[in-house]
Design a protein around this nucleic acid. Structure first.
Lengths: 204, 204
DNA sequence: AAATCTTTGATACCGACGTATCAAAGCGAT
DNA sequence: ATCGCTTTGATACGTCGGTATCAAAGATTT
């Protein structure tokens, strides 16, 4: 009784199943068998689409990164001022926090991968580890725009501030993930920090 | 040819071996067998002192936390002004970064545990997860002292600032661990942030 | 209708790992 | 010297997990 789905559908179906398992039981619970069961398909089919577990995991990471990017873009687009640095930055940083199940899974899996990458050269060479770098440049650009706009004092070093923002957001995210802090608490801290940076909203 | 060491010596010998394995190959490489091999003793003896792997891992975590606490205390004590808030805070935060092999292992193992704790209620109940809370109160106290001393502007909220410092330090630490940032870069960022807080050194 | 792609099932192999067991022997203390 | 604690060795059991293989059958395309 094969239902015959096309490759892309199957791929995402399997990857989404993987993320559900990883999100609820941790990355260590992700096995070829558990993913197959979660996706309601046979183990054999998982092997059919992703020959090895390593390929499966890397594909899942790509998928995850893509969804995260989309989430952030959507969030920025939906703000009332999608061209104001303060608005953009605050949206990006708060959307990066593990607030709902989706972003929680992202944080969890990403961190788990990162820990592996710290001792596995093959994983460390993966492109997903350069995502923060891209983000840092993006934030630094926004800060420089703000300085030109006059909504950020000129004595601030955009590059360093961007690095701080990124580390702050990551640190808060981890704390939220571990239940050491609430998401509201974290967003408040981000807002507080941006205020004290002197990064103001651009008047309409 | 038993050498007959006492319990404490053996315990630390085994735990240190575990940390060496975890530090170089990751927590996933920690098995009863690999620890035994690293410690140059028989598998049976590891079982003898720590009956189950779970107990072994928890003991290792305790050991690790204790060493980290000592490291920080020593570092603070060795500064030129061990009672000045700015000096203390900067020492604590920079010592928390993974600069040498020891602190690198600490970060790596702690993060690995934390990731597990996010999906394992039994691990989440462990006391080691409350360490950041203690640290946060400590930092907030120091900031309040600074405000009384006049080395920190009164409009800063000590509690929130402490939370930000902790998250910042953790986030920078992770970035250093992953090779996305150098340790020097991270210490510079911390120093920069403290400067812009308006947290100054107390004049002698 | 034939050829190709998709899907399942059953099953097997092999390695790794946690755990357990038994026997034996070295060493310290009473 | 006897008793108890420590240490080793060999070994085994069960489970889990990644991977592989074979046969067969449904679906799609040509």
């Amino acid at each position: 009784m094969p239902k015959l789905a096309d490759r892309d559908t199957r791929h995402t179906q399997i990857l989404e199943a993987l993320l559900r398992v990883a999100g609820s039981q941790g990355l260590h619970a992700v096995t070829m068998r558990s993913v197959a069961a979660e996706a309601n398909i046979s183990l054999r089919l998982v092997q059919y689409y992703f020959e090895t577990k390593e390929k499966l995991l890397l594909a899942a990471l790509d998928h995850l990164a893509g969804r995260q990017r989309e989430r952030i873009q959507t969030r920025v687009r939906d703000t009332d001022a999608p061209d104001d640095p303060r608005t953009i930055i605050e949206a990006v940083l708060t959307e990066s926090l593990p607030t709902d199940q989706d972003s929680r899974t992202f944080h969890l899996v990403y961190t788990a991968y990162a820990v592996h990458a710290a001792t596995d050269p093959a994983l460390a060479a993966q492109p997903f580890l350069r995502a923060p770098d891209t983000m840092e440049h993006f934030l630094a650009d926004q800060l420089r725009h703000a300085q030109r706009d006059g909504t950020l004092p000129p004595h601030r070093d955009a590059h360093t501030e961007a690095a701080i923002l990124l580390a702050l957001s990551a640190g808060l995210g981890t704390a939220v993930l571990l239940g050491q802090r609430t998401a509201e608490n974290a967003t408040t801290a981000i807002s507080y920090h941006l205020d004290h940076l002197g990064l103001t909203r651009r008047p309409a």
